[in-house]
């Protein structure tokens, strides 16, 4: 197997690991096809397409009232399931962060230089804020009732806004905490890791801007539909 095809397979299997339960079957389907694609570069392009497929599926434009009602009903249903049935999914965030605090905390206690103490301190601070945030957000009881389309639409808009609007406190809390962890890690690592983390940060920032653009457009589409209906 060539390096390029190996890379395509690695990328595909990584996307399978990251996919949400609802999209997993489809991402697995994409990954299985990699073996059958003629040409290594085509296989790599296919694997990159699986990332795009996930984003494209989740945030496709909403152009009609039917599409809007379908999307908001699905979103509300997922939230209801998450709150009522999926204990692991609901609590995974803050428990994972708690683990991060213990790891970074023990590194902080062992840190010998000022630079390392500041670096691990920033990482502990970032994970602590995220732990509190995820703990407080672990259950959202305000999912509207089935059938109340207007309330579900407002709920969906609010959740999108909260996750992606620059004027949302949630966005700043999460992003600044992640930034604190990354900067802290950059401070304590060697030059090779610093470069890798720098690239990671740049890619993350690019994805963040892209998400901002998509979500802003989606919110505008929803507003336009609601406006047209009234």
């Amino acid at each position: 197997m060539t390096l390029v095809r190996g890379l395509a397979q690695k990328l595909s299997s990584h996307v399978v690991k990251l996919a949400s339960p609802g999209a997993k079957e489809w991402v697995q389907a994409l990954a299985r096809e990699v073996d059958f694609i003629e040409g290594d570069w085509n296989a790599l392009a296919w694997a990159f397409g699986s990332v795009r497929a996930l984003f494209g599926y989740r945030l496709a434009p909403i152009r009609s009232w039917d599409e809007l009602s379908f999307t908001v009903e699905k979103f509300a249903e997922q939230k209801r399931h998450r709150v009522n049935d999926a204990w692991v999914a609901t609590n995974f965030g803050w428990l994972n962060m708690l683990l991060g605090i213990s790891n970074f905390g023990s590194d902080l206690l062992r840190a010998a230089t000022t630079r390392n103490r500041i670096g691990y301190g920033m990482a502990v601070f970032g994970t602590l804020i995220l732990t509190i945030y995820f703990f407080l957000r672990r259950a959202d009881p305000n999912v509207p009732d089935r059938g109340d389309l207007t309330a579900m639409t407002r709920f969906y808009q609010r959740e999108l806004w909260r996750a992606c609007s620059l004027s949302s406190p949630d966005l700043w809390i999460v992003d600044l905490s992640i930034l604190a962890i990354i900067v802290g890690m950059v401070m304590v690592q060697g030059p090779a890791w610093q470069t890798a983390l720098g690239i990671f940060l740049a890619i993350g920032f690019g994805l963040f801007l892209q998400m901002q653009r998509i979500v802003r457009r989606r919110l505008e589409q929803i507003e336009a539909l609601l406006h047209g209906r009234n």
Binding site: A23, W26, A29, E33, F36, W46, G49, S50, A53, G56
Partner: peptide, 23 residues
């Protein structure tokens, strides 16, 4: 039909084809 065959015959990339299949 296989996804790759559909992609080849329609000329659509995986990132375009699969969201359509999912919907």
């Amino acid at each position: 039909r296989y996804g790759y065959d559909l992609s080849r015959n329609t000329g659509l990339k995986s990132g375009t084809l699969y969201p359509i299949l999912m919907r």
